[in-house]
Amino acid sequence: MAASIASFARETWIVFWRQLRIALRNPAWVIIGLIQPVLYLSLFGPLLEPMAGILGTDNAYAIFVPGLLVQLGLFGALFAGFGLVAEWRAGVIEAERVTPASRTALLLGRVLRDVVQLLVQGVVLIALGFAFGLRASFGGMLYGLALTLLLGAAAACASNALALVTKSEDVMAPLINSIALPLLLLSGILIPMSVGPQWLETISDFVPTKHVVDAIRAAFAGNFGEPILWGTVWAVVIFVVFVIVGTRTFRKENA
């Protein structure tokens, strides 16, 4: 058992390093991923500042940055599968599947790359937010970042699984967009759902990621109460479900 855990960790690490090396050699995607939140912060953030009162806070960025974190985690990671389609086309996935390496390691090594990328982006986002005027509890920000990484890992698993099933960017792109957009809108990424009408908030209560966004906002505010508990439970549940789904997809068809 211990030996198999060690070899699983080793295989995950090999896949992860290979992915990271390739990603760093072509950093365009990392940079594009970073520019997006910067644009939101600098071009949309100032619009929110005067609305801080309506949002029920004295620091608009403490509401806004957590939303951007989740957007980064969901959107960035949901598109991670595109790289997998290219790898599949080049025969890399087949070549890896014919090795004795654990199928789960083949998936998690890739997801780990996305999580590391998300971590860097998240730290940059929070640091930039500070420059713009974000003030929040330090421990809360760390906790919020951790929830973001869980959500991002789940999204990356889902995206990689989808890539392996569809094997086509042309199918994936509209599918992901049509899932991600309502998810982002109903999660209250830009403005908390509590500002809106009752019916909209009621609908959003059924969207798990809304609870994660609420939890991260609560954490930023240093308010470690019930919202954090629910958001954390949801983040963990989503993570576990999609790791299982992703692993099953990677195992499928194999003898």
């Binding site: 090999i14 290979r18 050699r25 790898e87 025969g91 890399v92 087949e94 070549a95 004795p100 390496a101």
Partner: peptide, 30 residues
């Protein structure tokens, strides 16, 4: 899997990677 080598017709390396690194990583998965 441990005992066989398989060369598929669709290739096995990423066009953007470095040839040597692909071979080493592949070997390490064994």
């Amino acid at each position: 899997r441990r005992s066989i080598g398989y060369v598929s017709q669709s290739g096995s390396t990423l066009p953007e990677a470095l040839a040597g690194e692909e071979v080493v990583d592949h070997g390490r998965l064994y």
